[in-house]
Design a protein around this nucleic acid. Sequence first.
DNA 1: CACAACTCAGTTGTGCACAACTAAATGGCT
DNA 2: AGCCATTTAGTTGTGCACAACTGAGTTGTG
Lengths: 164, 164
Amino acid sequence: MSTPAAAAAGPEDNWLRLDSQICFSLQAASRAFNGVYRVILKDLGLTYPQYLVMLVLWEEGELPVKKLGEHLRLDSGTLSPLLKRLESAGLVRRERSARDERSVEVRLTEEGTALRERAVRVPRRIVAATGLDLAEIGELRERLDQLTTALDTAARQEELGDAR
Amino acid sequence: MSTPAAAAAGPEDNWLRLDSQICFSLQAASRAFNGVYRVILKDLGLTYPQYLVMLVLWEEGELPVKKLGEHLRLDSGTLSPLLKRLESAGLVRRERSARDERSVEVRLTEEGTALRERAVRVPRRIVAATGLDLAEIGELRERLDQLTTALDTAARQEELGDAR
DNA sequence: CACAACTCAGTTGTGCACAACTAAATGGCT
DNA sequence: AGCCATTTAGTTGTGCACAACTGAGTTGTG
């Protein structure tokens, strides 16, 4: 009872702590990843989200902002300024689609395509930084994807339940 | 060879994909958590990082900004504006320490202490949203903490290795 | 005492995430 | 053709993360 706020530790308090631990651990891991990427991607002049965009473009060739957002689970509010920065860095071009004037096609420039050569060494360093082998990574990834699905579903239901 | 960028798929490309999957899965899970918290914490008028700060304060009573940052792995650049918002919401007070004028003590107001009563129901809903039992959560948490440690170590070493 | 090294909070600037909104274009419908 | 719901980017505003820096305060050393 030395600290007033910590008084009356009931069974609910154990929940309080456990909860903070799982989400906190997750965010800590996410930020730690970000830190490693920051260091490794500095040479390429990319941030981590920009790197993800480039990964998709290197795989898909060219595609509209909408599709890009679906791949990365990001909306235009995040992608528009990000893509502008990539464009002013000379890595991509953005052009209104001729078929559908609402749509903007994002495609790689020569420079953007060339950057791929320097990026292929990144993943190996990242995997090494995790200290895990491929099987462990796959397993963890699967758990996380399940968790994400469960959380997304729950969030939708909470929102509906909140329709007061 | 239909899409130029995806041509010449060598062994390096598998790495490229795997890599993006593990970090991407992690970030997706982190954002999904954020989404659930956003919905659940809306009633309390807190964002998720603000909730974390309150959790620490409810447990520790009062403490300087520095200690708070150590608990949460956040620096003053993040905490200062966040704490100002909590202060203007009437949940905390910030006072220069008398013993050490450099330090700022953060402590709960009556209102901030009272909010705890309404927050105790949050963790149960979060755990329910994950669809996991406590053992699974503990296991996943442990894996993530190990991963974070490995990544932090690697980032430090990469930075040193970058001392070119 | 004087002075250098350090500590701590705060500020500034950049970039990301997301909600809410705007505006243009599209396509279906009558 | 005219109308309207939908789709698509973009803009604005809020909040967080972090690097780099400032400036006040503290501590150790000669």
